[in-house]
């Protein structure tokens, strides 16, 4: 247990490594095409533009309100699912480091999370733009965006960090897990209110109650002032705390074998 936390501490102390490599990963996306990661933003906008009117008529909502609802859902879901699915081969991709240094394993996970946080910040332009054209940005909402949003992203990252420890180690040790994780994520996307709304009074549904991703996305929606959403600090904390012993167990059992698996 002490080893686990000292490794986390060592990884954080080596922030230059994962921060600069993450920054380089994003820069690479720019170098290949002029717009770089903004392509992601554009394709996300197209998705929202195309699906917004359709789904809002299906669900009987207002187009603008639904576009905001959908874009926050999609963007945060993309952040969560990309991080988890990339964690499956993060050690295999970092094998040249792992095979000849004793760098703590977590720096590679931090690199991938840092990269995805930067990409998330690109995509946040969409809901902020939608808020602005909606015209109801007042001072309190502005304050909420600059204080709560970074805080939420920070706490989602902590949760994802422990999830990714489990998935990265397990998927490196057992190679047939990775496709299972990918299809699992796809299933979870449909079970989580990314596209559909839950409205009032149906919070007790089992799909929602035990779904950590619901609490993450709903909290994000609250920050963007979307009706019927709320912050769930206790749920996020609870799910993160549940992940810690799981991460510790996987780390203790399998981390020393990682170098022989890649």
């Amino acid at each position: 247990m002490r080893l686990f936390f000292s490794e986390i501490f060592k990884s954080l102390k080596f922030w230059r490594f994962w921060y600069f490599y993450a920054l380089q990963d994003v820069k690479n996306k720019y170098s290949r095409s002029y717009l770089g990661p903004l392509w992601v933003t554009i394709s996300m906008s197209v998705t929202v533009l195309a699906m917004g009117p359709l789904y809002s008529s299906l669900f009987g909502n207002q187009v603008h309100g639904y576009a905001l609802y959908l874009s926050t859902g999609l963007i945060f879901w993309a952040f969560i699912s990309t991080s988890i699915s990339e964690s499956c081969d993060v050690f295999i991709n970092s094998s040249s480091f792992i095979k000849q240094t004793d760098f703590p394993l977590f720096i590679y996970i931090l690199r991938l999370l840092a990269r995805n946080v930067i990409l998330l910040m690109h995509n946040l332009v969409i809901p902020i733009f939608l808020l602005l054209i909606g015209g109801n940005v007042d001072f309190t909402l502005f304050l909420r965006l600059i204080t709560l949003l970074p805080l939420l992203i920070f706490f989602i990252s902590i949760f994802l960090f422990f999830v990714c420890i489990v998935t990265s180690i397990m998927c490196t040790r057992f190679r047939d897990l990775s496709p299972m994780v990918q299809s699992g994520l796809q299933l979870i996307m449909f079970l989580t209110p990314v596209f559909w709304g839950i409205g009032d009074g149906r919070h007790s549904s089992l799909y929602i109650l035990f779904n950590p991703f619901y609490y993450l996305i709903d909290s994000a929606r609250y920050i963007f002032d979307i009706p019927d959403s709320s912050l769930h600090p206790r749920a996020i904390a609870l799910f993160s705390i549940v992940m810690v012993p799981l991460a510790m167990l996987t780390y203790k059992k399998l981390s020393s074998r990682m170098v022989y698996c890649i």
């Binding site: 380089q24 170098s31 290949r32 040249s96 095979k99 000849q100 240094t101």
Partner: peptide, 12 residues
Amino acid sequence: LIDIGMGLDPEA
């Protein structure tokens, strides 16, 4: 210097 290509990013 076991593998001197360690940490080089081909795109950068």
